[in-house]
């Protein structure tokens, strides 16, 4: 039906999202750096000065390893969920492959993520153990995370067309997840029976893997990686299936 150039289309949609977000902001992409830096400052103050926590060294870097992935996850998930309903004009009027809309939204958040990753890597290089060969694992774990978010967004963006409540469910889920992934605590203090639940949760898995790589300068735990890869693949396959089942009736509901 539509036999255009997928890469060219994807690139245009990603660049569009990114440009629109920053074009009219005088601080531009610095907003991407400001938000995690402020959060890091506040959390470091609370957990180092107000509620001293001697177990964790280098708390700013530790908490940054949690904040950057979580920020990406929550922004990509929330923007992605509303992307199909917000692009109703496009979905109803131009016969493009419809999977491309939510996926482009996630990928444009990746540009924003790239800036935050650079900040995280700079911190790890300067205040942490420095650059080492285990950093080669970074593209692998981030790719698994993006795969997971794409799957999740495909499912929730399709459901959001039918039930606009979906966006509020996602918003609440993000608030809840902030506490349920180890952003400002270690997996060691989590009771043993819940540890495997954490490892199957791709966002928690990414944070754990990042800390192994950037703070401990070691390769991530193999068992963790297996669970991480499993959950991400299943989420993507499920998201794609749900989306392709629901997309045929988008026209009637938008």
């Amino acid at each position: 039906m539509w036999n255009g150039d997928y890469l060219f289309l994807l690139q245009n949609l990603v660049v569009k999202d990114f440009k629109i977000r920053y074009r009219n902001m005088s601080l531009g992409v610095f907003w991407s750096l400001l938000n995690p830096l402020i959060m890091m400052g506040v959390m470091t103050f609370v957990f180092v000065k107000v509620m001293p926590n001697s177990n964790i060294d280098n708390f700013p870097l530790f908490v940054m390893c949690g904040l950057v992935p979580f920020n990406f996850f929550s922004i990509a998930w929330q923007n992605g969920t509303i992307s199909v309903a917000n692009n109703a004009g496009l979905i109803k009027r131009i016969p493009v492959p419809r999977e491309i809309v939510p996926i482009a939204t996630v990928l444009s958040t990746c540009i924003h993520l790239g800036i935050q990753i650079l900040l995280l890597l700079t911190m790890a290089a300067v205040f942490g153990p420095g650059v080492n060969r285990y950093w080669l694992w970074l593209p692998v774990v981030w790719a698994l995370d993006i795969l997971f978010v794409c799957g999740l967004v495909l499912a929730t963006s399709a459901l959001d067309v039918y039930l606009r409540d979906m966006r509020y469910i996602v918003e609440s889920a993000c608030t809840v997840l902030f506490w349920l992934v180890p952003i400002f605590y270690t997996l060691a203090i989590v009771p043993a029976e819940y540890v495997s639940v954490y490892q199957f949760n791709p966002i928690a898995a990414l944070i754990l893997a990042l800390r192994r790589i950037l703070i401990d300068a070691a390769s991530p735990d193999t068992g963790l990686l297996m669970k991480f890869a499993f959950s991400s693949t299943v989420a993507f396959a499920a998201g794609l299936t749900i989306y392709s089942k629901l997309k045929s009736r988008f026209f009637d509901y938008l």
Partner: peptide, 27 residues
């Protein structure tokens, strides 16, 4: 619908490329 997929904050040039890719042009 003329201009479906156009965005007011993008320039004419950017909109031409965006619209062209939506309609199935190659780069």
């Amino acid at each position: 619908e003329l201009g479906a997929g156009f965005h007011p904050d993008l320039t004419g040039r950017e909109n031409v490329f965006l619209n062209a890719s939506l309609l199935g042009f190659t780069r």
